[in-house]
Design a protein around this nucleic acid. Structure first.
Lengths: 135, 135
DNA sequence: CAGCATCCTCGCGGATACTG
DNA sequence: CAGTATCCGCGAGGATGCTG
């Protein structure tokens, strides 16, 4: 499974993989990574650097501690963040992006700025659609 | 609500908005757009151009017709796709990306290629993590 | 402080049946 | 063919309480 090269035949128009096996794997990774909380944590860590657990929760905003823990475990498992436990009392745990996590954050940056720049247009489109509907 | 300018004060390090109001709105849009099916439909339409309903379902793969309809309505409302009904029998409905939809697809392209290029590394990270755990 | 365990709810999303 | 309508299971995810 380490040799993926024969499957990396890119679609000429889009540069996306044509192999259904790889496509499925990529979709799976996308599904994991395109999670709401994952994106927000990624953003918080990108903006504010390494953070400890509770601070990270505040920066993300509106996340339960359960989801914070859960999402961070996932991200750690996927090699996106590093979890550092300081053996002190009271306990202190720091989270920071790996370099892979950082590259993902950069990739998402495009989506983020897209959302920002198209906010008004989306708002307008919704308004128009709704009015068209309820006639 | 059309005047957003005073809120668009960018964070110097990241270029991301610092205003909590805008941030909330952006997060909301992200939440909507970072949906699994939305991304896959976006991809299908980008790769294969305008598609009719049933064909689109096949290209996406594994989506129920309910979710396909629902997601397409959302995307239409947000101004991402255009729905064209041909008044013929049997009915024929075509879906195509708007230019805004296309720009979003391009923004996501970065995430997509990231997923593709980091597949193996994620796989490895998971393996290492799991072995570290079950000791 | 960081996190695990438990309970419980709510809505995502699949399956099925029916219409224009 | 392209939907709409309905039912329903299940899992995401919040709230609460307890530990090291």
């Amino acid at each position: 499974m380490t040799a993926v090269s024969p499957a990396r035949i890119a679609h000429p128009d889009t540069g996306l993989p044509a192999d259904p096996r790889v496509e499925a794997l990529v979709n799976q990774v996308i599904g994991r990574v395109a999670d709401k909380w994952t994106m927000l944590i990624l953003e918080a860590l990108t903006e504010h650097g390494p953070l400890r657990f509770s601070r990270l929760g505040k920066e993300v905003g509106g996340i339960s501690q359960k989801m914070l823990t859960q999402t961070l475990r996932q991200m750690e498992r996927d090699g996106l963040v590093i979890r550092t436990v300081h053996p002190v009392i009271p306990p202190r745990v720091d989270y920071q992006l790996t370099d892979m996590g950082l590259t993902l954050a950069e990739a998402f940056c495009g989506v983020w700025t897209w959302a920002e720049t198209h906010l008004e247009r989306i708002e307008a489109a919704r308004l128009a659609f709704d009015q068209r509907q309820q006639t």
